[in-house]
């Protein structure tokens, strides 16, 4: 038996992007991990915390810590949800310190814990990578996702200009300051289109939902896709576009 890993799917991915979570399971099992999905998980409380509802966030943090008790590692396909647990939880309640220490964003877990950069993936498409703000600045994942992408066979990686600029999502910011958020999105989409990539990828489905939502509205034909789905794709079982 390999490392006992709990998948922290995140409420958004569970509801809107089940393919991403399935890809994480497939990828981690391929790399020898024993993956479990604790059924008690719901939401980490990030939306409440970031919008100013700290008391609700504390409640959700405590129950999140309980849901993931007893696993060697907790892996999330999200820099911002992993960042919430690791960087914010310890300030909310001391009972969350253990889960905070054991929580990883997917690319960190692959590179730092499993020690792999070549996950045996195959993805014959032109791809650009958007480093999401929380993975970049809160967790400091740095080059890890790019390292993983560089080892994917068939993948043509194109650099995104202005990559480290926020896409404008920002949780409730996208609603409370919708016009400013959209202005930020417009510039991000311009940069994505300049790369002539077929796929824009990132480590967070929230940011991808924003960028992809804009690209889809403008009928650009550019697809947003989570990093996990690219890494899970192999020659035997290649990624297939679902509408």
């Amino acid at each position: 038996m390999g490392t006992r890993v709990a998948l922290f799917a995140t409420c958004l991915t569970d509801t809107f992007f089940p393919d991403t979570a399935r890809a994480v399971v497939r990828l981690l099992e391929r790399l020898g991990c024993d993956v479990d999905f604790p059924a008690a998980q719901t939401c980490c409380g990030q939306m409440h915390y970031n919008t100013g509802y700290r008391a609700h966030a504390v409640k959700l943090a405590k129950r999140h810590a309980k849901a993931f008790d007893g696993y060697d590692a907790v892996v999330a396909p999200s820099g911002s949800c992993a960042g919430m647990v690791r960087e914010v939880y310890p300030d909310l309640h001391r009972r969350t310190e253990s889960v905070a220490r054991r929580t990883y964003e997917l690319s960190e877990f692959l590179v730092d814990v499993l020690g792999v950069t070549d996950v045996g993936a195959y993805f014959p498409h032109r791809v650009t990578y958007h480093p999401t703000c929380h993975s970049l600045r809160m967790l400091g994942v740095g080059e890890k996702p790019l390292e993983l992408l560089r080892h994917v066979r068939g993948l043509d990686l194109v650099e995104l200009s202005g990559a480290d600029s926020c896409c404008g999502f920002g949780g409730t910011f996208a609603l409370k300051n919708a016009e400013t958020s959209t202005a930020m999105l417009a510039d991000k989409m311009t940069h994505v289109l300049e790369t002539r990539a077929q796929v824009v990828t990132a480590g967070d489905n929230s940011c991808l939902m924003h960028i992809g939502g804009g690209l889809s509205r403008l009928k650009t034909g550019v697809r947003s896709l989570h990093l996990a789905e690219i890494l899970a794709s192999t020659e035997e079982e290649p990624w297939a576009a679902t509408p």
């Binding site: 799917a9 809107f16 089940p18 996208a174 509205r217």
Partner: peptide, 21 residues
């Protein structure tokens, strides 16, 4: 406030947790 400028993906027919169960 969202859909004025962005499409929203429809929730999946089967959530991940339902698929896992």
């Amino acid at each position: 406030k969202w859909t004025d400028s962005r499409d929203l993906p429809a929730p999946a027919a089967e959530t991940f947790s339902a698929w896992w169960r």
